[in-house]
Amino acid sequence: MTDPSTTAAEPRPSLAKVFWVFLVLGATSLGGGVVGYLRTGLVVRQRWLDDTAFVELLSISQTLPGLNATNMAILVGDRLRGGWGALLATLGMCLPSAVLMTAAAFAYDIGGDSAASKAFLHGIAAGALGLVLVVMVQLGSRVLKSAADYVFVLATAGAVAGLGISVPYALLAAGAVAIWWHRPRRNGDR
């Protein structure tokens, strides 16, 4: 649990403090750009991490299954306070929106069937689609480096959305080919 190599700039925060900071992040990170809020909260305000460590943990979060927000909570919580830190950070991150979205399900049962609320929700869905596309383009601009990468993107999307191949097969097949394509070469850096 105690690893001397993970000393942050500030002294180790208490478990209660870890929970509180992630609870505030979980309650205030409106609009989906959770990574931006995380950086502001963890690197700028609390100074629990520097930018290098933040980017490193973020790249692990994005490579592994799981959402960026909760994966970051687990990795940062573990660095700060070990297993309990990871657990409390994750609970803090999830609690506000878990309550909110459970309540939304019951509210939807009451008012979701009216034509007006359907129109409103459908408008929100169209807006959210715009957001998904922006996230995709931003993710792509960081990740896609060569023409082959674009081929992997289109092949994966075509297999899943066009041919209806289920995601695990597409993920395993395209993932294996893509990782092999990027395999470490003996001479030259890639």
Partner: peptide
């Protein structure tokens, strides 16, 4: 790098 491009593809499929 490999999983990166595949995950962009999955996001596109979802979209």
């Amino acid at each position: 790098a490999g999983l990166g491009s595949v995950s962009v593809g999955l996001v596109l499929a979802g979209a």
